[in-house]
Design a protein around this nucleic acid. Structure first.
Lengths: 225, 225
DNA sequence: AGCACCCTGACAAAAGGCTGACAGCCCTCG
DNA sequence: CGAGGGCTGTCAGCCTTTTGTCAGGGTGCT
């Protein structure tokens, strides 16, 4: 799942990126306000982490512009000056959460994950679909209690589709979620990935909607009979 | 597991650090309030020991500021004046425990360990996984009742992983928990450490989730059959 | 049939993780 | 004080797994 990190300080950006990556996010970074605005308006991120002190265009302005343009991307604001007025301003500008610097990485992680879950309406750490169980703590998928080994990329694919269960997800969207933005778009890597997953899980779980994308049914629908 | 010790007196700090280190904690020290506040807000400690009489920013204020910022780090307060009002103040400021000076080192140890266990939602001082028993009181690991010698660092690794049983722990997180903040992040020391532990305990206990991190299963799952 | 899509097996590059060897450090013991 | 031994981080080499690419073959719709 792609995250946008807007942060001008290299040091901070690196640390934050590392921890977010470690828990499975694909992090892309903007260094200044203009870049941030453009990326956020263009690319489909699941959430953005927005530092307020930025060159070229202030963080709050970026946020306001996004909101003005109807962009509903969940935004977590980071701010060095943790004062009261700024927090209010942030919330008013349309932020979803606010974290004063300095912060602990765990807290950032927790909040980002909360944000993403809230946005996805998916609070469960274990996603179930028929005989399949995706355990996000163990980062493990099992069928009928038997663990099935998935590579990181395969895991991300299944995880994303299960989080979006019941919705058709286009190849384009998957490419965007699984790969960095500068990735060659005209390769069939998603197809290959889906193929590999199917070989492991059987053809039933991930359905193809020819011309539209891929789909994992919601648990109820698939077992209604 | 990293602990923050906030204490201005060198003598006391040294003694306390020595005993905590001896039972497997990695202790980092702050000498005054500002430093304490910053470290506690920035680094991922499992708990803090907070002396109240401090230069530059009073201990209670530090605590209040942490709490105001949503920092839930477990805190044990140390105080020279063991009077009633101060104790109440401490608890009200958000402390988790309170220990009047002078205290016996054993008592401090016991309380800190209790604090950490409570915070981890792990009431048991003895963690069991299959034939392995980790006794956090004696800091010993045994298999089938036979003690296995672990070096301090090895013990910390196993201990952390067992406390997080059932969860994949990334190398990054392990590095943060096992090494002090200024540690070179791009070495393979964690891998080496894991290797050493496995040589002593066998390959079964610590699983590798390639691309994700390491994992010790919960006892139940591993012996369900 | 024709076309756009999708699947699959093979391959090679790259990443991730493991291991043995080694060196620095510290402690203990004689 | 010096020798020996344990602990630990670093490094280089090795092996395995992962993953993007490509070419060729299906599949379903019009």
């Amino acid at each position: 799942m792609r995250l946008l990190l807007v942060e001008d300080d290299d040091q901070v950006a690196e640390t934050v990126t590392a921890s977010l990556t470690a828990v499975g996010f694909l992090v892309e970074r903007a260094r200044d306000g203009r870049e941030a605005w453009f990326m956020g308006d263009t690319e489909p991120y699941v959430a953005a982490i927005l530092d307020l002190g930025l060159p070229s265009l202030d963080g709050l302005s970026v946020l306001r512009q996004w909101r003005a343009a109807g962009q509903r991307l969940p935004v977590l604001i980071l701010s060095a000056r943790g004062d009261w007025t700024e927090r209010v301003e942030g919330i008013e500008a349309g932020a979803d959460d606010y974290l004063p610097k300095p912060f602990r990485l765990e807290e950032l992680l927790a909040r980002v994950q909360a944000l993403v879950r809230r946005a996805a309406g998916q609070p469960a750490p274990v996603l179930v679909h028929g005989p399949f169980r995706l355990d996000t703590r163990r980062q493990t998928l099992s069928r009928d209690g038997l663990a099935i080994h998935l590579s990181p990329q395969e895991y991300r694919l299944v995880s994303y589709l299960m989080q979006q269960a019941g919705r058709v997800v286009s190849q384009q969207e998957l490419t965007e979620q699984l790969y960095a933005q500068d990735f060659e778009r005209d390769s069939n890597s998603v197809e290959v990935l889906v193929g590999r997953v199917r070989r492991k899980l059987g053809a039933g779980l991930i359905q193809t909607r020819r011309g539209f994308g891929y789909l994992i049914e919601t648990d109820d629908d698939s077992h209604a009979s």
